Simulated assay, not measured.
Amino acid sequence: MSYVVTGGGRGIGRAVVERLLADGGPVVVVERDPDALAWLPAHPAADRLAPVVGDAADERVAGRAADLAEGFAPLAGWVNNAAVFRDALVESATAVEVWELIGLNLRPAVVGAATAVRRFLAAGTGGAVVNVSSHQARRPVPGCLPYATAKAAVEGLTRALAVEYGPRGIRCNAVALGSIVTERHLAFLAEREPAEATWIGTELARLHPVGRPGRVDEVADAVAYLLSATFVNGVTLPVDGGRAVLGLDPEAR
């Protein structure tokens, strides 16, 4: 069985790739930035890895990834992880600008899911799609309107695909992530003053009932589970340490 992971060169995506490789499957890694793929040739499982440089929202790129995956083995799973963290306020940005930002995070999921579904149907094998969402799909934070809107749409897409194609052997699920420690997160902290970085760490611990942000391998475990859980369909699984269910005490100071 082979897999495609978009945005698989760094952070969460790479952790998913590593987990799927450890489970024995060949993986095609889609990335816009060629530098994010520099680690592939020296990887111990390089013979089960294939890079695709390009935009995951481009159907030609997605098709190339599917071709490479099927060249390894029957395509079994597609992980829509690619995301862009850019936002705007509707009070200052045009509606067109806001819509374009929503599309940056929604289009890759639509293109990836559509490509996977078509290949699963053509092969007659069934398969699984996992979309990467966010706690912000249900509980947005200020300043992230396009991102939160896109992730809410990704979760709606997940449910619609599950209903439409479940009878044909195709499952679709999502993971809704809390704060996860990635290279991008660490770089963000490194740019802050020490006191501010400490405050951010304290706040993240407070917002997650487990007392800390998540690790990329913990996300990869959840994604691998949803790819293999044959009676789980249409689910958005919070992978957030309890952040989505936390009701902070309004009397707390």
Rank of each mutant, 00 (worst) to 15 (best):
T6G: 10
D35P: 00
G124D: 08
N131T: 00
L37R: 06
H43D: 12
C144I: 09
A123D: 11
P146E: 05
R10W: 09
A56N: 14
A15F: 12
R184V: 13
L161H: 01
A205S: 05
G63A: 01
R184P: 03
G242M: 15
L237T: 08
F72Y: 15
A252Y: 01
T182Q: 14
A222D: 02
V16H: 06
A174D: 08
V132P: 03
V17P: 01
H135S: 07
A220T: 02
G126N: 00
V111Q: 03
Y165F: 09
N80Q: 15
D58C: 13
D67A: 11
D55Y: 14
V98E: 03
T94R: 07
E59T: 07
L49V: 10
E91Y: 15
N81L: 14
T125L: 04
L186I: 10
V52N: 11
A65S: 07
A195L: 02
A82N: 15
L237G: 04
G126P: 01
R159K: 13
R192F: 01
G166L: 03
D221N: 08
W99H: 05
A222H: 06
P51H: 15
N131W: 01
W39A: 10
S134K: 10
A252M: 02
T198C: 00
Y165V: 02
V110E: 04
